[in-house]
Design a protein around this nucleic acid. Structure first.
Ligand SMILES: [Zn+2]
Ligand SMILES: [Zn+2]
Ligand SMILES: [Zn+2]
Ligand SMILES: [Zn+2]
Lengths: 142, 142
DNA sequence: CGATCGGATGTTATATCATAACATCTATCT
DNA sequence: AGATAGATGTTATGATATAACATCCGATCG
């Protein structure tokens, strides 16, 4: 599954591994925290590695969280869709080809040429929606 | 379904007017800059006004720009779609009912209960796409 | 009237996210 | 060796956002 076109540097590999292991979005400073003591001491290194990984399509940036997550299906795809549970923090990357086509159609209909399409849904995951019967649980948040 | 609108405070009105007049997204600090000398001297006031306006459905936050824009059709709508030109900075709020329904269907199909749906397209507007013939012009950005 | 309550604001300080600018190091190609 | 490209280190700063607490004011109610 790991289709890597360019070889990754040490730090880039380390960042990707950390994101994959986390299985949830991490902020650049979360990553920096985990990399201190491994020779990574400042934000630019982390941001540079993330930039590369995003370029390579291995990592997505989630705008509404200011955080990064390993791509669940690492192909280059210029559209990413995320469902973000505001209760437990679960983030799921969704794929829906028809949606992508419809979005592209909608944008081009207005003459817009989209190079990147971001869809982020906020709400409650199935588990949390089931649990939620009027009362609130321990809000996770980011 | 009675859409009860709360009266807006002085600052809230001022912020909404500034956003409407700008016709483009402004950051909270852009707004603060314009409000200094009118008794608004610190970020919290601006953020609080924006929070209220977003709650009322009069303003949208554009996540990928960290900026705010007046809603083009101020109804409460939990889905907002924006086409953002990376060249000239033009931001257009799009409406597409079928897309909204398809997104809702997709999310609920996976058991997710969406309360808010964000769609942000990055690329080039019709005018800039026409001008762009391989060469880059004066990248505007925000 | 006077109590009190909610909404808005002021104020200070700080947290969080991101980049500029410049120096260094190494691998690779010529 | 010289040149190039990519990655990293380092220092400093910019940009975005919130915490915590105090004050003010209009509406409501006993
Ligand atoms: Zn992906
Ligand atoms: Zn959940
Ligand atoms: Zn709107
Ligand atoms: Zn444009």
């Amino acid at each position: 599954m790991t289709v890597r076109r360019q070889p990754l540097s040490q730090t880039q590999t380390r960042v990707l591994d950390l994101l994959s292991a986390a299985g949830r979005p991490l902020s650049a400073y979360d990553l920096l925290g985990k990399l201190r003591g491994e020779g990574v001491n400042a934000p630019p290194t982390v941001y540079r590695a993330l930039e590369k990984l995003v370029r390579e399509g291995l990592v997505h940036r989630i705008e509404s969280l200011n955080a990064f997550v390993a791509c669940s299906t690492p192909h280059h795809h210029d559209m990413a869709t995320f469902a973000i549970c505001d209760q437990c923090g679960l983030v799921t990357e969704l794929t829906d080809r028809p949606l992508q086509e419809q979005l592209a159609a909608m944008s081009s209909r207005s003459g817009f040429h989209a190079t990147r399409m971001m869809v982020e849904l906020r709400g409650h995951c199935a588990a949390c929606a089931a649990k939620a019967h009027g009362h609130g649980a321990s809000d996770h948040a980011h």
